[in-house]
Design a protein around this nucleic acid. Structure first.
Length: 180
DNA sequence: AGTTCGATCGCCT
DNA sequence: GGCGATCGAACTG
């Protein structure tokens, strides 16, 4: 089994909460670890990647391009690498605060429709690397009213290694995804 | 110790 | 559609 892929699909529709802001996950990507050239954990445990090898249900937050933070959720048992990048959220609570944090965003659909955008909109940063998302301050919860989803699959965005693998999952026709 | 380059975004043309 | 911003992790020598 590859739990990471199942988790990436199952996270669609789930809610991410941080303080007064929250959003519904509409787009994810799976990063498999050893053998997945695009994964930070592909080359084993380093100071940066140790949380990816840690227990599931924790957050892996890293800095990309020197400017933006990206949020991942660890999916595999301790000792095994595997995480899910949260790529886009549909804003739910705290929308005025999100707009204040991202003044350049025009329209609600642009507030959190990208991995760097959603961390900034929710106030998530490197200080949250390693936190348990079942305990806070970041919380990830099942949707209050689960519904069947039409899930689309594609290649992952913005990578060169292992670029052909179908490991991006998003809610079809949802206006809050980062790309069609 | 030096170099390369990236799981991005927003502004420019 | 193209590119500059900005910096640390990881690899090379």
């Amino acid at each position: 089994m590859r739990p990471t892929i199942e988790v990436a699909r199952a996270l669609l529709g789930a809610i991410v909460i941080h303080g007064p802001t929250s959003g519904r996950i509409v787009e994810t990507e799976a990063y498999l670890g050893i053998g997945d050239g695009a994964a930070h954990s592909a080359r084993g445990i380093t100071p940066r990647t140790e949380v990816i090898f840690g227990p599931p249900g924790h957050a892996y937050v890293y800095l990309i391009y020197g400017m933006y933070d990206c949020l991942n959720l660890i999916a595999e048992p301790e000792g095994v690498a595997g995480g899910v990048l949260i790529r886009a959220l549909e804003p739910i609570d705290g929308i005025p605060l999100m707009q204040k944090r991202r003044p350049t965003a025009r329209g609600v659909e642009n507030l959190a429709n990208g991995p760097g955008k959603l961390t900034r909109a929710l106030g998530i940063g490197l200080q949250h690397n390693g936190v348990d998302v079942t305990r806070g301050p970041i919380l990830v919860c099942a949707p209050p009213q689960p519904e069947p989803l039409d899930i689309a699959v594609s290649r992952r965005i913005g990578i060169t290694q292992s670029a052909d693998l179908p490991l991006r999952f998003f809610i079809r026709d949802n206006r809050f995804v980062s790309k069609k």
